[in-house]
Design a protein around this nucleic acid. Structure first.
Lengths: 138, 138
DNA sequence: ACTAGTAATCGTAATCGTTCCTGTTTACCC
DNA sequence: GGGTAAACAGGAACGATTACGATTACTAGT
């Protein structure tokens, strides 16, 4: 997702264009990996030393709900990254050291043979964890 | 996993047979679903009003490491359940209302076509979330 | 451009799940 | 039964996240 696409979504829903939102989106568009609220804060604090976690979490949640960011949970912490390939369903290999991901186009839901009649499926998660080639060397 | 199997594992590693451990294992063997530390506490508190969270978490973590319980994270909280079909790799449909699960024998790792050469795979997670037939009716 | 109205923010305190700490109790081996 | 290390209770501390009242800053309408 590009910055322009993100702003188009936000302005289509009457969200205002603020400096904080610009900084957050800039950070994600320049860092193509899963990031924590703390990492976002450490970046923002240079421009805005008084930045509040309330602001960060509120915006991250908003962006996630609007499909601008995607979200996952790694060792008890929320992680966010810019939505990639918007619209096309996929999964990720996630590096547990740096947060970088690699797309996995195959979705296991297509080949699940279990009969889930009577069940109401709300979602699914398929992630592979490990170290990317760069972090293997460290 | 039966209570006998669990105790055989524990005693093989010189873990002591305490009242608290008996209560925890009894609770899991009678409740075939994912449970939180709080639910465990609410059950234990009847026998032992002074039960400490430290004791609960310490034992849940131990049991999980020994393969007696299996663990997953649902909306930011650790959930535990008795290890089912010990040894046989499988995945779960998980009811987000009651924590009950249904086994999914198919493992997506077998059909992942992405080349992960140079990567170090540490683990994976495949879970389907939704409502079980009982909770759909509520 | 000016102003009103409302969304967004700041700063701080509170919450929640989980872990740490210290002194005491308990299970197990002899 | 006595010694010893494991297990425990109670409470304090922790890190991530959320809630809150007061203030600031966008944006639309004049």
């Amino acid at each position: 997702m590009t910055l322009d696409e993100a702003w188009r979504i936000l302005q289509g829903r009457q969200f205002k264009r603020t400096k904080n939102r610009e900084t957050i989106l800039e950070f994600f568009s320049e860092n193509d990996r899963y990031l924590t609220a703390m990492e976002v804060r450490n970046f923002m604090i240079e421009d805005n030393p008084g930045i509040s976690f309330d602001t960060i979490y509120r915006n991250l949640t908003t962006f996630s709900e609007l499909g601008i960011l995607e979200e996952t949970e790694l060792n008890g912490e929320r992680h966010f990254r810019m939505q990639c390939d918007h619209g096309v369903h996929h999964h990720h290999f996630i590096c547990t050291a740096c947060g970088k991901t690699r797309n996995i186009p195959h979705c296991p839901m297509e080949s699940v043979s279990v009969n889930l009649q009577g069940y109401e499926v709300e979602g699914h998660k398929f992630e592979i964890y490990g170290k990317c080639p760069v972090c293997v060397e460290q």
